[in-house]
Simulated assay, not measured.
Amino acid sequence: MNKVMSNKWVIALYVLPSLLLLGGLVYIPIVLTGYYGLMSWDGIGEMTFIGLDNYSRLLQDSTFWLSARHSFLLALFSTLSLIAYLAISLILSARLKGSELLRKIYLIPMLLSSVAIAQLWIKIYDPNNGMLNSLLTFLGVENPPAWLADRSTVLIAIFIAIIWQYAGFYIIIYSAALKGIPYSLIEAARIDGATPFQIAYKIKIPLITGVIKVTIILAIVGSLKYFDLIYVMTGGGPNGASEVIASYMYKEAFGRYNFGYGSAIGFALLVLALLTTWLIQKLTASKDELQY
């Protein structure tokens, strides 16, 4: 067996199907997207080569930069929400009664489709009969806002729905990482007189730093390319107040049949995601990894 696996041709034969699949589903579409961004094309007729005109237009497009600002705000909000997810996971890891049931409850939003979640939150935010405004009215708030129709509240309303949607995903990741910490370390710290806060801050969190870094990248990159729930809830409105890069790209390509410019937006989104990922890895890089 070792003789077979040392043969480079055999290794190449095993790797080839994965490379073909990865190339066909990832790398070739990326190259084509960048290529289409050099064209003026309505998606049906002939393509006309216009060079970097689409990318030059992108740099001067105020709507694109507004949508990019919203995407980065969502990324920032999602990253900060990881603190809450980690705190919940630390509490659930304390072997409290009912913690397993709570983990399953937090996971429920992940079982629903984005469209179903969007419809649920649209009902919650309904200005006339929604649960949120009904509660605010009951508490004495006069003229509660029309959450999804008000430019000043639409972003925060959508961000809350997105954070609720992915709470279970990150809590499960953190809980699995915390379960991997040997219980003997926790028990030894308790015998030495460490408080639950000290155990969490000085033992548990440092030992799952690698997982935390991964979730930061997942949250930021996922936020930059987020599309479906926002498009269903507001379509980028009102008047572009909740437009993100992905929804703007969709409108240009499939709404205005400007596939060349839509491809340029998509390629710019890819570049932004790659640069952001590289920057995060540089900022969070550390030479020493804690072992246990």
Rank of each mutant, 00 (worst) to 15 (best):
V271E: 04
M249S: 13
I245G: 04
I245N: 01
A253T: 15
T276W: 02
S247M: 14
L279F: 08
Y261W: 12
V232P: 00
Y231R: 02
V244C: 00
R256S: 13
A253F: 10
V271W: 03
L274A: 14
L269C: 02
E243M: 14
Y226H: 15
S247V: 15
T277K: 14
Y226L: 13
Y257K: 06
N258L: 05
N239E: 15
V232G: 07
G266L: 14
L279G: 04
G266T: 15
L272Y: 12
V232K: 00
A241M: 08
A264C: 10
Y248T: 00
A246S: 14
Q281A: 02
Y226K: 09
D228C: 01
N258C: 01
T234P: 05
R256T: 11
S242H: 00
T276G: 04
Y231A: 02
G237H: 13
G262T: 12
A253Y: 00
I230Y: 02
G260S: 09
A268R: 06
A268Q: 07
K282C: 04
A241W: 03
V271A: 10
A246E: 00
G235A: 08
L283Q: 12
L272W: 08
V271P: 02
L274D: 00
E252R: 09
M233K: 11
F227E: 01
Y257H: 12
F227D: 00
A273D: 01
D228H: 03
F227H: 08
T284K: 07
Y261C: 10
M233L: 13
L274E: 09
G260C: 09
G237D: 14
S263Q: 08
T234N: 04
F259I: 10
G236P: 08
Y257C: 00
V244I: 13
T276H: 00
M233A: 11
N258Y: 03
F267W: 11
M249N: 06
T276E: 05
T277H: 10
V232S: 09
L229C: 06
M249F: 12
V271K: 06
L229N: 05
M233N: 09
L283K: 05
D228Y: 02
W278F: 14
M249Y: 05
K282F: 11
